[in-house]
Write a protein that binds this DNA or RNA. Structure first.
Lengths: 185, 185
DNA sequence: TCGAATATGTAACATCTGTTACATGTAACT
DNA sequence: AGTTACATGTAACAGATGTTACATATTCGA
């Protein structure tokens, strides 16, 4: 008895919060501006999510789920592993994916600085991408997959900061070249 | 006339502030805890440096200078470029250099999120490292240097977060291998 | 010894932070 | 109607933030 719960309200707030965090980042995130952008107030955010920390945790997981859904755009029609890698790079370095990458880097830096709530998330993300490369490129080793993920992460960071995509894309092209030549040697 | 300025006081505070920021990061940096760790109070930090923002700027530049001084440890006794690259990796991934790397990632993430005071610093750092690789490896192109810097940055980030240095070092070893094989092919 | 300039300490200011107490509204069931 | 449980708004709380006003020391030169 009593009034029925309305879980869709909470879900809508969460999705809008993901939008906001993808745009503004986690760094200076504050409940009151966030709530105002969501058409509510800080009181309701605490009511629905318990605390700011729990809200951030849910936002991170929801953002990750959203990115995984976008991963479906990467059809498996690649002919060879190098074409698959190039498609993956083009997908990940596209402007639409940039907010997700920025958010992940933010979490990773937080993890590096010892924030425990980010450490598990960051490690899982790294292992997840390495696992994705491992299964996308049959026959690859963990060392090779770690190299690929690390290189792409480093180049993407460069591009997101400098915006010098010709240079960064050239570097990625060089990476593909040495990978090809290395497999022949 | 009047009392003489004592610039060494300011310089000592700055060096201690660099120590503190290298250990605690920029993220939650606050004047009062910083000042207490330095044996002074927030009032004096503002007095000497004008504002928190200016203090941070000076700390970043001083930290960069300190890292450049450590770069002198890298003697040029490497026989071939690959040995030089390996020495550079071992130097940069050593625990003593980790605080500098963490600080740079923190600045880079701030730059990505649009904090103007970090953008110039991060871009200069990236271009600086690429220039360093370019002049350390004669005959290398900007694309190759960008690839090397990006890869090392990505792998270092992985190692600093996961601590799985066997895997990360293995990935770097694989990078050296494909570079060698690529140059032969 | 006086004036002048730098150094320092205390305390306040206004503002922002996450969180909560309290009141009230709203929908459902008896 | 009355009870129960969820939803929401206002306002406050305690604490932290960067910065500043004010007072006072300290050290120099005349």
């Amino acid at each position: 008895m009593g009034r029925q719960p309305e879980p869709h309200k909470r879900a809508e707030l969460l999705e809008k919060a993901v939008d906001y965090v993808l745009e503004h980042g986690l760094q200076g995130l504050s409940l009151r501006p966030l709530a105002q952008a969501l058409g509510t107030n800080a009181r309701m955010l605490i009511y629905h999510f318990g605390s700011k920390e729990k809200l951030v945790t849910e936002v991170l997981e929801a953002a990750q789920a959203r990115q995984r859904a976008l991963l479906g755009e990467l059809g498996g029609e690649a002919t060879d592993p190098y074409a698959a890698l190039e498609a993956f790079w083009r997908w990940f370095s596209s402007p639409r994916l940039a907010p997700f990458a920025r958010l992940l880097y933010e979490v990773e830096v937080g993890a590096m600085q010892g924030q425990l709530e980010y450490q598990g998330f960051a490690r899982r993300a790294i292992h997840g991408w390495i696992g994705f490369v491992l299964q996308s490129l049959p026959g690859s080793t963990p060392a090779q997959a770690s190299l690929i993920v690390g290189t792409l992460a480093g180049l993407l960071l460069d591009g997101l900061i400098t915006g010098e995509w010709e240079r960064v894309n050239g570097a990625f092209g060089g990476f593909l070249e040495v990978l090809r030549a290395g497999s022949r040697g």
